[in-house]
């Protein structure tokens, strides 16, 4: 397994304009959904981005998928900025990066047969002969545990878990290097979650594919990820290998996030850190460290200076004034 990154993200920013007015729209502010995010994903590994809703993790995924144009920064695949690609080069990038979305009920076209849904990434690329498409579709379907006879059915004839399997098969069929998993199991029943997670882990080993996992569920993250980045209000506050992060969380926000998760056994006593206040609006984020209004350890400098990332242990990076 090589250690070359399949994807590098540098200084990625996405600011959405907030407009006012009916005919002459005036920009009155900017939602800083993603504000300077750096990470890289190595081949065959999983990077998870965790954080509460509204922290910018889905926007990050959309930027990587070229569904949104970044306001600043770049996403590099094979050393090329993917947002500058066009035509054939863009189509080739599309085959190397696929996605599985959260809601299996809205992520499959209700008017297409399973076979066509799975084959779509190959068909639109226009480079594959029909025979090969057919073989690959069959192979992908059997690998996710769907029967060959099911290829002619429509999505409404499947349950949620099976729909997610169809989505996974469709993501795999073009043999991508990277699959973005945007909350892949959070819409599923608890009993189905483990199945889909195991499937994804198995497929990762078979295909040597990388995952960018977007999640808010910590157990999912812990099970699937090699590395975890914690996001808060558009910035990554802490990033570390999974075991290191769960064993030794450093950032006060990470600690609070972990303490909010239920322990694995009800008898285990654990101290819950309750944060004061609400998540501030990303339209006017707090000055300095964005977490300072809610941080139990905030110092005077936290509201003034933006904390700089500091590597505390191998691969364990934290952006907090407590450690500088």
């Amino acid at each position: 397994m090589s250690a070359t990154p399949v994807l590098q993200v540098r200084g990625l920013k996405k600011h959405f304009p907030v407009t006012k007015g009916f005919l002459w729209k005036k920009v009155v502010g900017w939602v800083q959904a993603v504000d300077g995010v750096d990470f890289s994903i190595r081949q065959g590994k999983t990077l998870a981005i965790v954080g509460e809703s509204g922290c910018g993790k889905t926007t990050t995924a959309k930027l990587v998928l070229c569904l949104e144009q970044p306001s600043a920064g770049e996403v590099l695949a094979d050393g090329k900025n993917v947002h500058a690609l066009a035509g054939d080069a863009l189509r080739d990038y599309r085959t190397t990066v696929q996605a599985v979305f959260q809601d299996p009920w809205s992520s499959l076209n209700p008017r297409m047969r399973v076979r066509d849904i799975v084959a779509e990434p190959l068909v639109v690329n226009r480079k594959f002969p029909e025979r090969e498409i057919e073989e690959r579709v069959e192979d992908a379907m059997s690998r996710v545990g769907l029967r060959r006879q099911q290829a002619n059915l429509y999505p409404h004839e499947f349950s949620g878990g099976q729909r997610q399997r169809i989505a996974v098969a469709s993501a795999l069929v073009s043999k991508p290097k990277l699959i973005i998993l945007d909350e892949p199991v959070s819409a599923l029943d608890v009993s189905i979650r483990a199945q889909i997670m195991n499937l994804l882990v198995d497929l990762q080993q078979q295909y040597d594919v990388s995952y960018l996992l977007i999640a808010h569920h910590l157990a999912t993250t812990r099970y699937m990820a090699n590395e975890v980045a914690v996001m808060y209000l558009g910035k990554i506050v802490e990033k570390a290998p999974t075991r290191e992060l769960f064993g030794n969380p450093l950032h006060p926000y990470t600690k609070a996030l972990f303490s909010a998760a239920l322990p694995s056994h009800p008898d285990i006593t654990h101290e819950e850190i309750i944060l004061k206040g609400e998540v501030p609006s990303p339209i006017n984020p707090p000055s300095g460290c964005r977490f300072h209004p809610r941080c139990p350890f905030a110092k005077a400098e936290c509201s003034v200076a933006v904390p700089i990332e500091k590597e505390m242990a191998a691969g364990h990076v934290v952006a907090c004034h407590l450690y500088s």
Partner: peptide
């Protein structure tokens, strides 16, 4: 809906 996002990720053209 997500299936449109998936189609774009797959590389489908606007016309398609």
């Amino acid at each position: 809906l997500d299936f449109i996002a998936r189609a774009r990720v797959a590389g489908a053209s606007h016309a398609r």
